[in-house]
């Protein structure tokens, strides 16, 4: 990503025009680097051909880890390491362990998934974003086309983007 320096940006103002533009641009054989939006646009991942994220799997795995850790901890602490007689109750019985097990399952699942999300999306404090256009976080959708990834000439790509009723077509050089 860092090597890519020269982009053509198609700027859109309406999410439906953007979706049909993505379709038209891809049909013309132009590769889109990425689309940037101020809010989540439904159907954009299918339009761009993105595979579904596997974050739910991460959440499930972390949840299983939390569940296992919680049960192991409780059984070991109150059953093996230092059993205490409390009202003559069993040292190890599952019903009283349910609340703590449930809470730790949820906790690890949530924290693990969010941490995974941060890592795969490269979100971290003090990271300087590579903003294509300052208006992305306000009200404009930006379709970024990397010139290095496309064999077509710059002017041809611009023509294709123009036909998709983009509001503006800009060059962006990093």
């Amino acid at each position: 990503m860092e090597k890519n320096k020269n982009f053509i940006l198609g700027i859109y103002d309406d999410e439906d025009i953007l979706l049909s533009a993505i379709k038209k641009v891809r049909q013309s054989g132009v590769k889109i680097q990425e689309v940037y939006s101020p809010f989540p646009v439904h159907g954009i991942d299918e339009a761009l051909g993105y595979k579904r994220t596997r974050l739910p799997i991460a959440a499930f795995m972390f949840g299983m880890l939390g569940c296992t850790l919680a049960l192991t901890m409780q059984i070991w602490m109150s059953g093996a390491d230092w059993p205490m007689i409390i009202g003559g109750k069993d040292f190890v019985s599952l019903p009283p362990f349910v609340p703590v097990t449930f809470e730790l399952t949820v906790l690890l699942s949530a924290l693990g998934m969010v941490a995974t999300f941060m890592i795969v999306s490269d979100l971290k404090p003090y990271k300087k974003p590579r903003l294509m256009d300052i208006r992305i976080t306000d009200d404009k959708h930006v379709m970024a086309i990397d010139l290095a990834n496309n064999e077509l000439e710059k002017e041809d790509i611009k023509k294709i983007v123009k036909e998709t009723s983009a509001e503006e077509i800009n060059d962006k050089n990093f």
Binding site: S37, L55, P56, S121, P125, T137
Partner: peptide, 23 residues
């Protein structure tokens, strides 16, 4: 956190929000 509004991040973000809601 260096947010740039990329569609891929939004897609993951929505997935994270949905699962957090489920949890």
């Amino acid at each position: 956190f260096g947010w740039d509004g990329a569609a891929k991040t939004w897609m993951r973000y929505e997935s994270v929000a949905l699962i957090l809601a489920g949890l």
